[in-house]
Design a protein around this nucleic acid. Structure first.
Length: 557
RNA sequence: GCGCCCGUAGCUCAGCUGGAUAGAGCAUCUGGCUUCGAACCAGAGGGUCGGGGGUUCGAGUCCUCCCGGGCGUGCCA
């Protein structure tokens, strides 16, 4: 059990006992948390419960704190409980408990901080899902990195995770994409071509055309027939998806499932869903289009499902069928979607419709990340695929590396607005904090390599010998790891992982600076053993953490 | 106009269901390698937490108004 949970249980029990004496029902008391005080003088954990209930009990919070502490049982996990003004209870954890945890890190290695058994919960994480109309660029990396880290974390925490990419291949943009490629093929093959205003015009389109051009060398593409157009469009799509997969691999992302929007149409699951909405009396026809009555469900207005001009479904319409499929056909217990903030208006109506379809919308968690914009001396500009003004992922990774790239995006909260000055961004990447973390890993690895010459068995080392401030800080930081994973699994705030990684690296570096690990004269073998133990534990936690964040744990740098 | 989000050090950002002295990296300045890795460490300067009001024992965090910015408000996706 996590120590914070343990303390919460303990305190809750004491609170119940206290309230019995006061003849107040426990349910009237507020929820409280066990937190970690910033100031080390206030112990390892703390709660402000006495302050929160002082009004309820009409008593001085300091007195309540004293009463509660008296009701707390002695236990070997806790060294002491103390009361601080104006009414906090502080907990200091015992050396024994620390020792126990450090041994657990060593013995469990990769499994430390994980639940002992797989969870009976199927979770889908859907992320990236960029339209297959070109290469991935800077604007796509944020959701990709956050999504993959969430998936890694949930896998680590023993959920049954499926990583999915939704391929939006049935909409209008595919037609424009197809035509954009054809014009470039014509250009490459030396025939007349015409890039229209609404065509995609990036280098990635030219790249696809170059790959397909030889095949159509002898075709007259001037009056493109429907069949040949569809063929080129589909070929272009395939090349494009191949490129996207390559790009994702560069930042250590591999999806389990590629789900095609077009498959929903082909399998009639889309029309089936449409019928379903009709049967629920949620659709109507107006101006030649089919609408869904989202306004009466609580949305701002009704939405079109089938367009009047071409009788094709809107993005929203197929997305309803897609999400229905996730829950009704594939039975996910939880679905986490990572969307750009430009889709936020979409969330409410999706949830409303899901509820009407008999699906608990709480099973769907949409995580928004704010759109990344480019800042330069000429002002702020949005990425535009169509205009071809993007910075491609592959170029960025080639320049700054995957780990620095991932770290830059993981370490910012998804809600923060990122205005990237690409020159500053690249410059900062050369001194990216990820290297600080990885350097700590390389350093401890190096010490462990050196220790091998001495053939020291430190498995029975005594952590009680670690008493200096740097040693104790490192021990305490290490055993914070399970608390961290537990918390982030709930909040999905993966930037806490990178914050912790930096904090851990920092205490490791500080420890290293003042504490010689290997005593080569072997005069103080017990101390050497205990320090090797903490170094080994540090390496394990760093490596586990870097792995979850999708980054390397280098032995050398 | 309305809805959602954001505004914290010169820059990029943390600040964990409100908590005890607001933090880190970069940049600037000072010091530290004959011993396990100096991609490191020690120290200094730098803040009216966009502004006003409010709730609270306690507000960067919650409420409200204002200022500034992003996104949405399509028979685009």
């Amino acid at each position: 059990m996590l120590i914070s949970e343990f303390l919460h249980n303990l305190t809750t029990q004491a609170l119940e006992d206290l309230l019995k004496g006061e003849e107040i029902d426990i349910y009237e008391a507020p929820d409280f948390i066990i937190e970690r005080p910033k100031n080390p003088n206030f112990g390892d954990f703390a709660t402000s419960l006495p302050l929160q209930i002082s009004k309820l009990l009409s008593k001085n919070p300091l007195d309540i704190a004293k009463n509660l502490v008296e009701l707390l049982p002695d236990c070997e996990e806790i060294e002491k409980f103390s009361v601080e003004k104006p009414g906090f209870i502080n907990f200091s954890i015992s050396k024994n408990w620390i020792k126990h945890e450090i041994k657990a890190i060593i013995s469990q290695e990769k499994n430390y901080g994980r639940p002992p058994n797989p969870r009976d919960s199927k979770v889908q994480v859907e992320f990236v899902s960029v339209n297959p109309t070109g290469r991935l660029h800077l604007g796509h990396i944020r959701g990709a990195v956050i999504g993959s880290t969430i998936a890694n974390l949930l896998e680590n925490q023993r959920f049954q995770v499926e990583k999915e990419y939704y391929v939006n291949d049935a909409g209008n943009q595919m037609e424009i994409f197809g035509r954009s490629v054809i014009e470039r093929i014509k250009e490459i093959n030396g025939t007349d071509f015409n890039i229209l205003e609404d065509h995609y015009r990036g280098d990635d389109i030219v790249e696809i055309a170059r790959e397909l051009a030889p095949k159509y060398k002898n075709h007259d593409l001037k009056n493109t027939k429907e069949t040949i157009f569809d063929e080129i469009k589909n070929n272009s799509k395939d090349v494009c998806i191949k490129n996207i997969k390559e790009d994702l691999k560069l930042i250590k992302i591999e999806h389990d499932t590629w789900f095609y929007e077009s498959s929903l149409i082909a399998s009639n699951y889309f029309s089936n869903t449409l019928d379903n909405l009709g049967n629920l009396d949620l659709t109507y026809e107006k101006d030649g289009a089919i609408w869904v009555k989202t306004e009466e469900l609580g949305d701002e207005r009704d939405n079109v499902l089938i367009k009047s001009n071409d009788n094709k479904p809107t993005y929203f319409a197929t997305d309803i069928a897609y999400h229905r499929d996730k829950f009704e056909v594939r039975n996910f217990d939880k679905v986490i979607d990572l969307w750009g903030a430009d889709h936020h208006g979409h969330i409410k109506r999706m949830e409303l419709i899901l509820e009407k379809l008999g699906i608990d919308s709480k099973k769907l968690k949409v995580l928004l990340n704010q759109i990344v914009s480019l800042k330069s001396s000429s002002g702020i500009s949005k990425f535009s695929k169509r205009a071809g003004t993007s910075i491609f992922l592959k170029d960025l990774v080639e320049e700054i590396g995957s780990d620095a790239c991932r770290f830059s995006f993981i370490s910012r909260s998804p809600e923060s607005q990122m205005e990237i000055d690409i020159d500053i961004f690249k410059k900062q990447s050369s001194e990216n904090p990820v290297f600080y973390v990885q350097y700590a890993h390389a350093r401890v690895s190096s010490i462990l390599r050196s220790s091998e010459h001495f053939d020291i068995d430190y498995s029975d080392a005594d952590t009680n010998l670690l008493v200096s401030a740097d040693e104790v800080n490192l021990l305490k930081k290490l055993i914070e790891y399970p608390e961290l994973l537990n918390r982030v699994t709930k909040t999905l705030n993966v930037h806490e992982l990178s914050s912790y990684a930096l904090e851990l690296a920092q205490v490791i570096h500080k420890f290293y600076e003042k504490n010689r690990v290997i005593d080569e004269d072997l005069t103080n073998i017990e101390q050497t053993k205990s320090r090797l133990l903490i170094i080994k534990a540090s390496k394990i936690i760093l490596s586990n953490l870097l792995n979850i964040m999708g980054m390397d744990s280098p032995e050398n740098m």
